[in-house]
Each structure stands twice: as structure tokens, then as C-alpha cells.
Write a protein that binds this DNA or RNA. Sequence first.
DNA 1: CTGAAAGCGCTTACAG
DNA 2: CTGAAAGCGCTTACAG
Lengths: 337, 337
Amino acid sequence: MAQDKNLTIQDIAQKAGVSIKTVSRVFNNSPNVRQQKRDLVLGVAKELGYRPNISARQLASKRSFVLIHFYDNPNMDYLAGIYDGMREACSEQGYYAVAERLKLKNRSYKDALLDYLTRNPVDGVILSPPISDDKAVIREIEKRDIPCALISPGVKKRNCINVFIDEKMAGQKMAEFLIDRGHTKLAFISGLDSHSASAQREAGFWAAVEAHGLKRKDMMRIGGDFSMQSGFTAFNALAKSNKNITGVFAANDEMAIGTIIAALRAGKKVPEEMSVVGFDDSAFARAMWPPITSLAQPIEDMAKFSAQKIIDWIDTKDREQSHYEFATEIMVRGSCP
Amino acid sequence: MAQDKNLTIQDIAQKAGVSIKTVSRVFNNSPNVRQQKRDLVLGVAKELGYRPNISARQLASKRSFVLIHFYDNPNMDYLAGIYDGMREACSEQGYYAVAERLKLKNRSYKDALLDYLTRNPVDGVILSPPISDDKAVIREIEKRDIPCALISPGVKKRNCINVFIDEKMAGQKMAEFLIDRGHTKLAFISGLDSHSASAQREAGFWAAVEAHGLKRKDMMRIGGDFSMQSGFTAFNALAKSNKNITGVFAANDEMAIGTIIAALRAGKKVPEEMSVVGFDDSAFARAMWPPITSLAQPIEDMAKFSAQKIIDWIDTKDREQSHYEFATEIMVRGSCP
DNA sequence: CTGAAAGCGCTTACAG
DNA sequence: CTGAAAGCGCTTACAG
């Protein structure tokens, strides 16, 4: 762990009694090294605190050693989770983790992507919703043979690493959570139709309704767009109806918050008169009053895993499997205790 | 603009009829090049679409060409603004822009900083609140002779570039905005005492009160901590008092939102019965209902400017001036139209 | 499975 | 103000 400034591949080679080429092979996860030598080199490197010089690798190999996350969802918690996960995997392997927002201003995600790629070489890509469902973007990445992982894609892609949660099952769990607490008149507030996760969560909602023998006519389905504003609107629709809904499941936390604010404004108590659950376990869901019961996904683990799989892919030029499902958890809070 | 992949310093030197050393000097903003040659080289480089290879520069110079922003404020808008500003300045000069959160878990910002610096070399640092007021952090950076810019420091530092807005004046403007709309009974909700900006905003508040001859006893000062929760509490204090406050100035948007939510819950109409203004122009301030009137600072410009000054400092080994003040603007919205 | 040589594109002293 | 030489720490073919 000495981390003596100028430790080079030479020092490791000498100390381990092998050629520098072997050391290089070890750090590139090249298959052509006997396990015994590999362990020897890794042991010496660890002991001395050696880490390969990325600049030298870049210059010599003409690779960038950059893994990039392209996103367009400004949820800070979500982004930070992905970034932390990526970085953990990247720093172990001597890669850079980078995050770049693709903005939709007068142009498509694809054009924004191409603009970025012509300026900045990358060795691997992670895409999150909604970009993980943009076919044009995925096609361009594929065309360039850049290893790519999709986080929560609506439709799994054959030539990408697909990392996701079971959105339908999660939706069902949330609905059952409400039902278990005695609610029999439920509402589902959907997100944007273009966002397939919302539709899957809704499918789970209806599956729960069916499984528990609740009457569909006691239920309400309100169209939203993931914004807080649409939560306000949704509450108005609830209030106008005479269904006497007591359990609300919003497809994300912002709409849950909007619903609660509108309810408070109307003098309705949460959770006493109406329980509300959200989705995403966002920072605001935790900061609200009451704090929001919400579904959490292990986004950091998902991102770390994605990054590792991409690096494996780069090293071996080969993916083994491409579908990986992660488990979710309900964070129980005041809006539906 | 051709961007022919492998354009090197050699190509530029040859085409411009100078030595590669001269080209190198030009791209390092070295003073020892005649202006005429500089223009010639820059012209050729631009024509051919040449950009220096950062890896090679890093390897040869042992510099990192990394400018890093250390932060611990999870406000996404704020961070994105800083990042975009940095990147604009950095990409022009062939630097990397990096953002890193320093977390306070069982250790100080200083320890988190040292941990980072031992692993990752950086050429320049930008600090934002609350880290821009952490003396131990600043001392460590100074000790290493790393050029450093402070965004909105509570106390300006001699050996740093100080970039800020006039917090007191901004506070005064906000208070006068309320007064101009006929409010004579005002409340100020403070942020954390450790955050000097809050105290300065408050000073501006009282200055406005005084300047307009309002009675101090008609005013209220409520202690908050920048959280939404403290906005709820603040409203309760308002409601319990018999001061009949109609204009509320919260030291940040989250507290303004908390205040409004609590008011709605209590059946009080905003802005009809009570106007509320915030500070920061956050995304949530814009998404709320009603949307929040808030003070915006030109954070992107501030960050770009900071990055440019740091790069100048690196190039010339020398700062000229170290205090730069930026102008602010009130974004008028529904919470106090 | 392993090694010796050349080279990636730039900067750093050192001269002039 | 400007140039020729050496070198930064690694990888890439090419042999064996």
C-alpha cells in the first residue's frame, strides 16, 4: 500500500521476476497467463500499491478506458446511485466513470449521442431510461461495436447487457401492500405512456386487484406524466369521483407528492383518510411530510454490475448472458405506514 | 473541421512551418511565442480540426489536466449548472471537468479530500458551499499549491479565486420585492447558522425593513435549517403567533415549499392570504404548485468563470485578482406574483 | 504461454 | 523567442 509515486510496470515485473509483458497481460485480464503467475503479479502489485498509469495505457493502446453513462433523467439520487456503482467497478479495473446528459433540444438523442462520440472516444456505454429504450441510439452504439448495458429497458435487447427489476412484480407488491392494509378502493396514477415501466407497474397493479378478488369498478386509473403537477390533477380527479378511494399508488414519487399536497390543500388527511404510495424511493419522498412509502430498487448494485459486465465484455470481446434481474424492496413510511 | 483521426502536433507544425515545440507552446498558453506565430498556429490547428491528445500531454508532463469540483450539496440543478459551466471552459482548453461529492461519514471533509487526492491527481479545484468555507480543506489544497476557486464562500480567502453574489443585497432585493407588493408584516425563515449565506440574506432582510420604515415588532424571525421539514415547523410558528404575517421570505426554496405545504394543510391560501418567496430557483420551486418566486444566481457563468481563472492561474502560475461578484435575478412566479 | 523492440503524441530541460 | 533529443509508462504486433 506504499503508493510510491513513480511505480511502473517495470518495478512490478522485476520484483515478480517476470517480463513487463506478462504484467501488462495480467492487468488487461488477458487469458494467456498461467494462474500461478497471475496471482504472483497481482500479489506483488498489491503489496507495492501499484496501479497502472491510465494515460500511458490510453496513449499506447489508443483506447479511452472510459465507461460512460448516458442519461436524461434528472433525478439526483438515481444518477448518484448509478455513478457510485459504476465508479466502484471502474476504479478496480482502471477505468474512468463518466456521466453525460443527452439533451433533447431540437434534436434526437441519437444526434446528441453522435455529437458526443465524435468528440470523445468511449470504450463502453450504460444507458438508463428513457434512453435505454431509444432504438436509434442503441443501433449507433452497436454499429461501432461498443459494449453496451441497458438499465431497466422496456424491451430487452439482444446485443446488449440487460439489467432490470421486475417492474410488474414490483407494481403488484405495492398494490398488495395497500390491500394488506385493508384498502379495497384503489387508484393507480400512471406515468408517461412512452415510459414502458409505468405500463408494467400498472399491469402489476391490476394483477394484484384480480388476485385478491377486488372489484375493478371500485378501482380508478388516472393518467399522469410523472410530474408533480400531474399528481395535483390526479387528486382532483379522485376528489370529483364518488368512488371514495382510500389507497393511491402513484407510478413515481413526484406524482405521489403532488397527490398528497393537493389532498392537504383540500383538507384531506394523509394517511388517515387516504394512503399514498410512490415508486423510486427518491430524496424528496424521504423529505416530504408525511414521508412517502415507496419502492426502492438496488440501483447502485445494478450499475456496478453493468459496469463489470461491460469490462468483461471488453476484455473477452464476448458476452456470456445478457439478462440480469435484481430484487426490490418497499420502504415503509408515513404516507402509508 | 476535418477532424482526421490521427492529427498530431507534427502535422500542425509542418503545415504552419514551425517546430513542434512552438505548437506545444501555443497550446500551453506559454508567453514566449510571438503573437503572429501564435495566430498562425491556432489558425492552422482550427482549420485542420486539431486537438491535443490529452493522454500524451498527461504522460509527458505528469499533469492530470483535471479540474475538479468538490461539493456536498445534492441540489441537482446547482450541480448541473456548475458542471456545465466548468465543462465549457475546460473543453476549450483541453481539460477534464470532474465532479466529486465529499461525504461526511465518520470523517471530516478534509479527510475525504485527502483520500481522494492521494488516489487521483488534480490540477485545479473548485469548491462550493458548504465546502468553500471549510478552512481545513482549503489549507490542504493551498499546501499542495493547487489552484483553487471558491464559489460563494462566506469568508473570502486570500489565496483563492473568490466568485460570489452579494448575498446581503440579494436578501434585501427579495424583502423589498415583498414590501413593494404591499406586505408590511414579514417573516424571515433562516437556514443553518453554520451556513453564512443565510445570515447575510437575513441582514439584507433587516436592511430592507429598516429602509422602508417598517416596524421591527411586526416582523418575525424563525430559525430553520434549510430542510423542508423546518418549513413546516416555521409555518406552525407563524400560525401560532398573532402577528398576522402576510409575506414570508425563506432562505431557500425547500423551506419555502415546506411553508407552503403546511399552509395549504392548514387551509391557508397561497398567495391570496400569504405570499412566500424562496431562494435558489430550484427545480422543485418551478415544479411546485403554486410555483415559487425565487432568487436565481448565474451559477453556470460563475463556474465557467472560475474554471477559466483556474486555468489562467495554472498557465501563468499567478492570479491577478481574486474577487469576482456576479449579478442575481428574481424569478417571479405564483407564490408571490 | 512468454519475451525484446518499436512506438503512441506530447513535454521537459538544455542549448542557442 | 526557437529548435533537436530524450523520455513519460504503457501496448502492439512479431517471434518463439
